[in-house]
Each structure stands twice: as C-alpha cells, then as structure tokens.
Amino acid sequence: MMICIRGNNLTVPYVFFEGNNLQISCKFLINKMMDLKLNMATIFNKELVSIFNQMKTLFLFHKEIKKHYLISKKFNSINDLYFQDGDCAFY
C-alpha cells in the first residue's frame, strides 16, 4: 500500500492485497489518521472502500467521488479495465 499525506488529507493512490488483509489495512489507515490528526481520506480502491463502509469509525461522513478516464478506441474490446488513482497509461 502506498499512502500520501498532504495537509490534513490521507490519500491511497496504490494498494494491492493478498488474502484477507483488507480489514488490517483499514485499521492501519484509521490508526494513522488518528495518530496524525488527519480529517480527510481519499480512497478509490473499491474493496477498501467497501470495508471502510462496513466498519464503525469516528469519522462523520463520506461522499462518493467518481473519476472518468479517456481510453483509446483500440481498447473497446477490453471490458474489465481497473485503474487506481495514480495510474497513467499511454499506448
């Protein structure tokens, strides 16, 4: 997992999991935010977000943010593209 802290915002641009490490990762992020007194987290990983939504936290609210990508027509046949926040690709 890569985290970036800027001001009061913790961002998770890249995350890769093996097995059932999602809950451990969420607890780590919550503890890190509390230790550093951060008040905002930006996470685009679907699995990580779903675990956060199931956990009880001290944070007041969350909102959904969607990012749109431009993809070349050459990739129209690919149906299961998955991008993370920091991904950038050229063809």
Results as ranks from 00 to 15, higher is better:
M1C: 11
M2F: 14
I3P: 00
I5C: 07
P13Y: 04
P13V: 12
Y14S: 02
V15H: 01
V15I: 13
F16P: 02
F16S: 10
F17C: 07
E18H: 07
E18P: 04
G19S: 05
N20A: 12
N20E: 15
N20Q: 04
Q23G: 04
Q23F: 05
I24F: 04
I24P: 00
S25R: 01
K27C: 05
K27N: 08
F28I: 04
I30K: 05
N31W: 08
N31F: 08
K32I: 01
K32H: 03
M33W: 01
D35H: 08
L36I: 02
N39Y: 15
N39G: 15
M40K: 11
A41T: 06
T42P: 00
N45M: 00
K46A: 10
K46T: 12
E47P: 02
V49W: 01
V49F: 01
I51S: 01
I51V: 15
N53S: 07
M55E: 08
M55T: 03
T57M: 05
T57A: 07
L58A: 11
L60N: 10
F61N: 12
F61Q: 08
E64Y: 09
E64T: 04
I65V: 13
K66S: 13
K66T: 11
H68V: 09
Y69T: 03
L70V: 13
L70Y: 10
K73C: 06
K74T: 14
S77E: 10
D80C: 08
L81F: 13
L81Q: 07
Y82S: 07
Q84I: 03
D85A: 05
C88Q: 08
C88R: 10
A89R: 11
